Amino acid sequence: MLEFLWMYTLIFLLSAIPLLEAVIVIPFAIFAGMPAVQVTIVALIGNLVTVYFIIIFIEQIKKWRKNKKPSKKSTENRRSQRAERIWKKYGLPGLAIIGPLIVGSHITALMSLTFGGTKRGVTYWLTFSLIGWCVLAAILAHLGFDLFNTRDRELF
């Protein structure tokens, strides 16, 4: 019992880490033999909790970024530029749906709010998007695992 609690805690924590995210953790946990439904739920909750913290504390995050020492190079990175192009072309729904795969859900939340999205809109769209991506990752991992499972097949 303690072993399962430890594994689910680890999935929760890994999913909460920016750039590691639930969409990456879910397939690894399923490939490790953990149940897909439980893994998906725990990973999704871990990812959403930290995204919600970003949404709730966006003002403090903006102040912190503003007060941070400016670097000598003030060029935007490629991910930020890509996210801004998506925002200009598709708005909040497009960035919320495409963003978690391109820049990660945490950066997507931050950029959506920075580009002018409302807290409520970003919360709804990112929740919807993350549920979809996590379910898709779990289904694909489960199907991929079953396709390559050769235990029950005879080799000759």
Rank of each mutant, 00 (worst) to 15 (best):
K68D: 01
K88F: 04
G46V: 02
K62D: 08
F53C: 11
N77H: 13
F145Q: 10
G121Y: 08
S74M: 14
T127C: 09
K69V: 10
K72G: 10
K72H: 06
K62A: 04
I102E: 07
R151T: 09
V42P: 01
P93K: 05
I58Y: 06
F57H: 13
R85N: 12
V42I: 15
N47K: 03
N47H: 12
G117L: 07
N77M: 09
I54V: 15
R65L: 15
G104W: 05
T108M: 06
F128H: 08
K119T: 11
L136E: 03
I58C: 01
D146L: 14
S80P: 01
G46P: 03
A141N: 07
P93T: 05
T50P: 03
L140F: 13
L95C: 05
S112G: 15
L126T: 00
R78P: 00
Y52E: 11
L126Q: 12
V103R: 02
V37R: 02
M111Q: 12
I86H: 03
V51D: 06
G104Q: 07
E76F: 15
R79Y: 13
T114I: 10
G116A: 11
D152E: 09
T118K: 14
L95G: 04
T118S: 15
N47D: 06
F128V: 15
L140V: 13
T114M: 13
H142G: 05
